[in-house]
């Protein structure tokens, strides 16, 4: 009986916290991709709770009913080999659940790997996010600016983050906009996101990358398109241009605050060409194979500095 109460109490605590006043980051989406994921998560939590409760109920029932202290001393448990029907049900029901979840999973996977729902027609903002020990560099090739450790984004427009790394594998993650994706040294991965409304968000590297990993975070500011344009203009008016020398200095291992530059490092230190993980990059992936040699040689020159 103790067990039962403990488990009930546990389930209620979890449920209370999950649906509590202070919503958990992942379950408090601010963009369509995170919404898809949060819906999937909640749905699976409910289905899984059903399974857990069923198993708990059967367990408690048999434990109470068939414990030795309740049986007569001469009770001899029967020999039961198994029963086709019962076992078919035990296989069939999980299969149905798994099929249902598989369909959900595949559908959502294609959704999060494409331009966010409701934003299809619009021109995406392309931002190159590259990590170095233990910083994030954001390059806006179209706007011609570069920031370190913070990223400003226009709300209500699709975002295309192009991810790569100047060192260990990192993982670019803004929980409230959507799930993470790896940034690696030899290829560019693409993460499709969008913010529904202006607001301040947390972003971080989620993949362990060495001593400075814990502080490897960045600030995300979603703002209206007009504010964003204003900010871009302001940067062009006030910030200094990024030079190769300056950029190599930024790449040195350590922690830095926020900083802003005009121009991007892509001009002198381009992203690896092998382009991966974008729904529309299928055509150029063949090409990427052939480009490989050249991209590697370029990368090597980048690395000789650091």
């Amino acid at each position: 009986m103790k067990l039962k109460w403990a488990l009930l109490a546990m389930i209620f605590t979890v449920a209370a916290v999950l649906s509590g006043c202070e919503p958990l980051l992942v379950l408090d989406p601010k963009g369509p991709q995170a919404k898809v994921q949060a819906d999937d998560i909640m749905l699976s939590i409910w289905i899984m709770s059903g399974i857990v409760i069923a198993v708990f109920a059967i367990l408690v029932f048999v434990l109470v009913k068939y414990r030795a202290s309740k049986q007569s001393a001469d009770y001899e448990p029967p020999h039961i080999e198994g029963n086709m029907l019962v076992e078919a049900i035990c296989i069939g029901v999980p299969i149905i659940i798994v099929i249902f979840l598989s369909v959900m999973s595949v559908k959502s996977n294609y959704e999060v790997e494409a331009t966010p729902k409701g934003y299809e027609g619009q021109e995406p903002v392309v931002i190159y996010a590259s990590s170095s020990n233990w910083k994030w560099h954001f390059s806006y090739p179209e706007e011609g600016i570069e920031t370190v450790n913070y990223v400003n984004i226009p709300a209500g427009r699709p975002l295309e983050f192009k991810l790569y790394s100047y060192g260990p594998i990192t993982s670019f993650w803004i929980p409230q906009l959507g799930g993470q994706k790896y940034a690696m040294a030899d290829m560019v991965t693409t993460l499709h996101l969008a913010a529904d409304e202006p607001g301040e968000l947390m972003g971080r590297n989620a993949n362990f990358s060495g001593a400075g990993f814990a502080e490897n975070t960045f600030d995300v500011q979603a703002m209206s398109q007009t504010d964003f344009d204003k900010w871009v203009k302001e940067v062009h008016d006030t910030a200094k241009p990024i030079t190769e020398e300056k950029f190599n200095e930024l790449l040195q291992p350590g922690h830095l605050g926020r900083s802003t530059y005009t121009g991007t490092h892509l001009e002198f230190s381009p992203a690896p060409e092998h382009n991966h993980g974008s729904a529309d990059s299928d055509k150029d992936s063949e090409e990427g194979e052939h480009h490989h040699e050249s991209s590697d040689s370029e990368k090597e020159t980048d690395h000789s500095h650091h």
Partner: peptide, 8 residues
């Protein structure tokens, strides 16, 4: 995997 990863 490495077949075409010939670098230099």
């Amino acid at each position: 995997v490495y077949e075409h990863r010939t670098g230099n």
